[in-house]
């Protein structure tokens, strides 16, 4: 796969993404916040965040008094998964924007996650498996800690550590994570958890034992589950993007070169099944904006993954200042 091809695809898809701005920007009216968070991540990884301050401020405007967000911006009940995604975009965006309102919103988000954690370390959201839900505040706290945010630092560290332990305690002996109430294959959850747990370990300098081994096992599980055509989960575009991206960061941190072939196969499949503009949820399906944001994000991360600097992709993710 040639870098020029990747660069050209990014250019085209980013132009399409901008054309669709009224579909994802809060400045155009109420939006699905999961989609908004996906879009803000594209801006971060395309390094265009400074041009979109109004979008970040609009995200602060729809934060609730408890510090969380709801799946739809006009709704009023906070839920964990989307709140973590929004909080993560705010703290990462504010590294570039340096805006006082965003900084305060991040503190309120920290309050929200500290208030909603269960005694056993998990976070709960009826829309998502508990393991997947838990990985998102852990990921948010990874960045909070990595960026040296001092607000309620000891509480954050304690909550973070309990969250990581909850994740590690629920890994199956085969290296995967599963939740029978949700997706049976465990592919998506495993992809999320290996990256979040490993980064947690990186940020906290090996304070929780066994993380690297657990994540290496999880990565091996994903290798084994990849189909011959490069996809995962029965040609699931979303899950193939999750696995491809996760393995980029995990194999970089673990120094596992075997992952390169797996990642390249996954990416090639994603390029092969894309629509003229954007991606659908499965090959042949119509383009949707959320998947298109994921696709663009995957390409941007691949560019960083191919950089000579082995930590470039980790840095792009916001984990290494």
């Amino acid at each position: 796969m040639h870098q020029e091809q990747i660069t050209q695809l990014i250019k085209e898809e980013y132009a399409f993404f901008l054309q669709q701005r009224s579909g994802w920007s809060l400045t155009a009216g109420p939006q699905d916040l999961e989609l908004v968070a996906h879009a803000l991540r594209v801006l971060l990884h395309a390094r265009t965040t400074p041009d979109f301050l109004a979008d970040y401020l609009a995200l602060v405007d729809c934060q609730h008094a408890d510090g969380g967000w709801s799946p739809f911006s006009a709704d009023h009940e906070s839920t964990v998964w989307v709140s973590a995604f929004c909080g993560l975009m705010l703290i990462r965006g504010n590294r570039l924007l340096g805006h006082e309102r965003l900084a305060r919103a991040v503190h309120r988000a920290i309050d929200y996650f500290l208030a909603t954690q269960r005694p056993d370390g998990r976070w709960v959201d009826p829309r998502w498996a508990d393991l997947d839900t838990t990985s998102h505040p852990v990921s948010f706290f990874n960045v909070v800690i990595a960026l040296g945010e001092s607000y309620r630092r000891s509480d954050v560290q304690r909550a973070w550590e309990q969250g990581v332990r909850f994740i590690l305690d629920h890994q199956s002996p085969d290296g995967g994570w599963y939740d029978n109430d949700f997706h049976p294959s465990g592919v998506e959850i495993t992809a999320h958890l290996i990256q979040d747990a490993l980064i947690a370990d990186l940020v906290m300098e090996n304070r929780v034992r066994g993380v690297r081994e657990a994540c290496a096992k999880g990565a091996a599980k994903l290798y084994a589950l990849q189909a011959a055509d490069g996809s995962w989960d029965g040609e699931n575009v979303d899950h193939t993007m999750d696995c491809t991206r996760s393995l980029m960061i995990v194999t970089r941190v673990l120094g596992d070169e075997h992952g390169r072939e797996v990642i390249t196969r996954g990416l090639q499949w994603l390029i092969d099944v894309k629509n003229p503009h954007g991606w659908g949820d499965f090959p042949g399906m119509e383009t949707n904006l959320e998947r298109t944001c994921d696709g663009l994000d995957t390409l941007l991360k691949y560019q960083a993954y191919c950089s000579a600097d082995p930590l470039a992709v980790v840095r792009l993710w916001g984990y290494v200042p």
């Binding site: 829309r127 109430d181 997706h183 499965f282």
Partner: peptide, 19 residues
């Protein structure tokens, strides 16, 4: 169960434990 995030629906009436 939906192939994306695994929400389960009863085929008889569409009901679900999810929202």
């Amino acid at each position: 169960k939906c192939p994306l995030h695994g929400w389960r629906f009863d085929l008889r009436d569409g009901s679900s434990q999810r929202p």
